[in-house]
Design a protein around this nucleic acid. Sequence first.
DNA 1: ATTATTGTATTAAGTGCTTAATACAATAAT
DNA 2: ATTATTGTATTAAGCACTTAATACAATAAT
Lengths: 126, 126
Amino acid sequence: MTWELQSDRPIYAQLIEQIELKICIGVFPLGSKLPSVRDLAKEASVNPNTMQKALAKLEEDGLLYTNRTSGRYVTEDIQMVKAVKRKKAQDHIKNFVDKMTELGFDDKEIVRILSSSLQKEDTKNE
Amino acid sequence: MTWELQSDRPIYAQLIEQIELKICIGVFPLGSKLPSVRDLAKEASVNPNTMQKALAKLEEDGLLYTNRTSGRYVTEDIQMVKAVKRKKAQDHIKNFVDKMTELGFDDKEIVRILSSSLQKEDTKNE
DNA sequence: ATTATTGTATTAAGTGCTTAATACAATAAT
DNA sequence: ATTATTGTATTAAGCACTTAATACAATAAT
């Protein structure tokens, strides 16, 4: 997985989400050391200040911590990471259901449409 | 339904989405006359210029048309409106599936989690 | 004919985000 | 001891978005 940044939302907010995701799925493992701010910024093709802004927020949330000049590390609190993953999934679900409900679909229709949509995807590789 | 604007994305983009939605679900019926730019801006608590920017884009897309000083109207092309609704639903589905897949859920899990999530909502009113 | 309403355009100011270019203190590496 | 790397902070500039205050032409309403 790489960095995918769009121009229609603040970059720092997208960085926060994507770093959270990388932690959740193990690209940045529990307790591991992160690349430096400057290296991460290069990787993502953003200004170091922008990356720093994102990292500061994640640190504030407890997902990262800093050893002054040794570098930045991912939390070792597995419960915290699991909670983040759970919250992300629930947010996606709520957002999806809200949007589909706005459009006029009821719960049964939402499940049916999603299922048939995934069904179609399956058949593409058969 | 009213206007729900957040500060983390351009307002004009949110206006476009919400006006499209209002057309899709009949708040602004096919062929009907829209309130004036100034009135819509008041309703949504935004600057007339911002509302104008959104309306201009919708007109460019063909969803609205203008009679120079008589006002602005919703298209009478029901197929176009249906297509917009279909696309919106598909976009929501793709976005949801992509996000959940990123998090590590496979197709079956996605359907199962969504179903059980909606199930829980049901039981709240029983 | 006059007035009010329509969409549209322009200019100026303020805000938040991003980049660029530095700089500094702490400490790991040599 | 010296050097390189770390996170962090500051200042200036540019950009897009938003608001505010106007103004204008066309035409519906009176």
